[in-house]
Lab assay of single mutants.
Amino acid sequence: MTTFKLIINGKTLKGEITIEAVDAAEAEKIFKQYANDNGIDGEWTYDDATKTFTVTE
């Protein structure tokens, strides 16, 4: 398992979430479901060097 981080730069929600996932594809699926569940819709980026996803509304 690898640790992945999501940085949320939303209009109403900001913060960071860290999860353990098998790979970046699994982490992205989990993070996008979390964002969808919380009404966050924005532009996604991923930095493989730091294993960090960012979503900006």
Score class of each variant (00 low, 15 high):
47 D>W: 09
21 A>D: 06
44 W>A: 01
40 I>S: 11
18 T>N: 10
8 I>D: 01
54 T>V: 05
45 T>H: 06
50 T>R: 14
48 D>H: 13
31 F>L: 08
10 G>A: 13
21 A>I: 10
11 K>M: 05
29 K>Y: 07
50 T>C: 02
49 A>I: 09
1 M>D: 09
57 E>T: 13
34 Y>W: 07
38 N>T: 08
11 K>T: 11
51 K>C: 03
10 G>Y: 13
41 D>R: 12
31 F>G: 15
48 D>T: 08
13 L>E: 05
16 E>C: 03
18 T>P: 03
20 E>R: 01
30 I>C: 03
35 A>M: 04
54 T>I: 12
3 T>P: 10
28 E>S: 09
17 I>E: 07
9 N>S: 10
11 K>C: 07
35 A>N: 07
43 E>V: 13
41 D>F: 09
35 A>P: 00
29 K>Q: 07
2 T>I: 05
4 F>S: 00
24 A>C: 02
26 E>W: 13
31 F>S: 05
55 V>S: 04
34 Y>T: 06
26 E>P: 05
24 A>N: 13
5 K>L: 14
22 V>N: 11
50 T>M: 09
13 L>F: 13
3 T>D: 12
44 W>I: 15
28 E>L: 11
26 E>I: 08
50 T>I: 05
46 Y>V: 02
22 V>D: 08
25 A>P: 06
48 D>R: 02
19 I>S: 04
42 G>P: 02
43 E>M: 10
31 F>E: 00
14 K>E: 02
19 I>D: 07
52 T>D: 03
20 E>H: 02
39 G>V: 10
3 T>I: 13
29 K>V: 13
47 D>E: 02
55 V>F: 06
30 I>R: 09
41 D>K: 05
7 I>C: 02
47 D>P: 01
16 E>R: 09
9 N>C: 03
27 A>L: 00
32 K>V: 04
42 G>M: 03
46 Y>E: 01
21 A>F: 03
47 D>L: 10
51 K>T: 09
24 A>F: 13
26 E>V: 06
53 F>D: 00
37 D>R: 12
43 E>W: 06
11 K>N: 12
50 T>N: 08
1 M>I: 11
57 E>H: 14
37 D>I: 13
36 N>V: 15
48 D>G: 10
39 G>K: 07
38 N>W: 06
30 I>Q: 07
31 F>Y: 09
15 G>K: 15
34 Y>A: 04
31 F>C: 01
45 T>S: 12
12 T>Q: 05
31 F>Q: 00
33 Q>L: 12
54 T>C: 02
29 K>H: 13
15 G>Y: 08
16 E>H: 13
36 N>Y: 14
50 T>L: 15
34 Y>H: 11
28 E>T: 12
41 D>W: 06
54 T>N: 05
42 G>A: 07
36 N>G: 15
56 T>M: 08
25 A>T: 08
4 F>M: 01
8 I>L: 10
10 G>I: 14
39 G>P: 06
29 K>I: 06
24 A>G: 09
54 T>E: 08
2 T>G: 04
41 D>N: 14
55 V>W: 05
31 F>P: 00
36 N>S: 06
40 I>L: 13
53 F>R: 00
32 K>Q: 07
40 I>P: 02
8 I>R: 01
5 K>P: 00
24 A>W: 15
44 W>C: 01
54 T>K: 07
5 K>C: 02
22 V>Q: 13
44 W>P: 01
7 I>Q: 11
